[in-house]
Design a protein around this nucleic acid. Sequence first.
DNA 1: ATTAAGTCATATGTAAGACTTATAAAAAAT
DNA 2: ATTTTTTATAAGTCTTACATATGACTTAAT
Lengths: 235, 235
Amino acid sequence: MKNIDESNLIERLNSVGTLTTVDRVEINLRNFFSNENLQPGDGIPKEIELARAMGVSRTTIREALIRLKLLGLIDSRKNRGIIITRPDVLSNIKRALDPQLMDGNTMKEIFELRLVLEMGIADILFIKKTEEKIRYLEMIVEREEKTKNKVERLKIDVEFHAMLYEMSENKTILQFQKMLLPVFDYVNNGLHVRSQVKNENYASHRVLLNILRNGTPEEFRIKMRSHLMKYFEKV
Amino acid sequence: MKNIDESNLIERLNSVGTLTTVDRVEINLRNFFSNENLQPGDGIPKEIELARAMGVSRTTIREALIRLKLLGLIDSRKNRGIIITRPDVLSNIKRALDPQLMDGNTMKEIFELRLVLEMGIADILFIKKTEEKIRYLEMIVEREEKTKNKVERLKIDVEFHAMLYEMSENKTILQFQKMLLPVFDYVNNGLHVRSQVKNENYASHRVLLNILRNGTPEEFRIKMRSHLMKYFEKV
DNA sequence: ATTAAGTCATATGTAAGACTTATAAAAAAT
DNA sequence: ATTTTTTATAAGTCTTACATATGACTTAAT
């Protein structure tokens, strides 16, 4: 009983009690944005005006603005003022995903997430595929097959997978991939020595491309899984 | 030609040229963290010391710290100082995903991302499924079938899908789902009127559960697609 | 001796004002 | 008309001062 009361208290304190001035200002600003129905590109009052309007110091306003800026909701330039931006949802988070500061388990989970994405994306790819895009993939694969240089091959590998995300024509998904890329890269570079252990039923990019041309989403998924599994054992 | 040069310029300016003092401080701090090999829970020097050490004002240091705090890399408490925290990668981004400030296209894209995730997750589910988890899903579905209340059914719907993510036993993926949840919710609540248009080959939760019991990942994917398609037309 | 209440020092949080710098827009020069 | 120079402006940075929460320490009470 006592425990429940206590946790409730903590809950309340965390959600309301310790709400700092900046927190309130941030909420006010967000409400202001959505109430005024501001569009990307629109400007908002300058820092001093906001500070006066909300009865806080410029320091406090700035801190709230810094948060919103980091979240990609606004952008600020000297003299120009502050403008609303289309929330660049995911691209900013990239900065939090520093592989160097990440523990092994999280990295494994992110890699699993990649597997989920690249298998789940199959249907969309078969819907959105065009002759032009396939040709572009073909070029990438040909370049890969000509190259012996390991570093170069790694770069092309990244290119191939990035192109798949791009083919989805979904900017959010593409951004998401870009955000996770440093993590994949880290895995690749750090451990590409063991990748010599060639798996017999490993699917090359060429195989994936051919399926994309004449196969089915399900075939694509199966091959993609075995393709990515190669890396999976590294993590 | 001119366009390319221009975009390159912007790219460079954004990434290097207009590197502000705070940007440099932020980079320094990150390097400091990874060089010192700091573990979650460890403390770092206080603001004034950091300011003196880097030769900038406390204001500037604070701004950099605010960013890192928002990214979940550190946490600060009065008097206690600043401590390293395990980057809670995704949970912070939630704040950027305010459906009210989101344009229709982005919402559509996020919903597509959900489709990708819930189809791509199928293989993992079949690997990680246990008797206990299946029973739990069974309970959810039974509750759903008994309920007529629309609001209640929506709540249970969310529960069912959340449970799937949980079954993946991947904390990162689960966090990601929680982050996107407000967006799904917004779609559901805002437009659940039209959902009366019953699609003939719509797959219920019951169907999905049965497949999870005795079917294959591929069957699961097919049904999941038709299941989510119901909502898709809303966006 | 152990627990509760009170105080004190400390580091972050907030405020206020001055100065610096980038830049958009206006003015001057080509 | 186009380029260059000035100028006003608003964000970026600095300094100083004060407020507030909290861990650590001291004291009082059972």
